[in-house]
Design a protein around this nucleic acid. Sequence first.
DNA 1: GCCAACGTTGGC
DNA 2: GCCAACGTTGGC
Length: 153
Amino acid sequence: MCSYWLFKSEPQTYSIEDLEAQGVCHWEGVRNYQARNFMRDQVKCGDLVLFYHSNSKPSAVVGFARVVKEAYPDFTSWQVDSEYFDPKSTEENPRWFMVDLAFETKFLKPVSLQVIKSRPEFSSMYLRRKGDRLSIQPVEKACFDLICQLGIA
DNA sequence: GCCAACGTTGGC
DNA sequence: GCCAACGTTGGC
């Protein structure tokens, strides 16, 4: 059984095109406890992940990926020269985690936040919540399927 | 670039 | 443990 997720990324930081070119990536830099807990405790190998471009024009789901490695310590957190460095995270006692994703599909038609907000089928999504800032969030299968259907059509 | 809606930090 | 100050996210 697999679960469904939505991961946010600013495309100028890391885009679906970057993942497509790279094939596989480490999802480093998550520095929010709620997002970390989802990733560390619930994101499993084989799960499918909607790739969302935030702070974008328009902000949209632009494709999906597959989880190919489950949570392990985010080594960027103890690299002093990394923008994600956190002095409170150590190799002995890591505070932050990451997973690996493999590229699956880039949508022909990105599914914009506007569309997600306009359809009643998506009313349960975290993206619809006022003040939503969660960068890793669970998605219901029905929502995942419909977004893929809209994106690929 | 603005700012609302958070989350985090640290003094007390 | 409270809460003010500060930092961040992300839509617009």
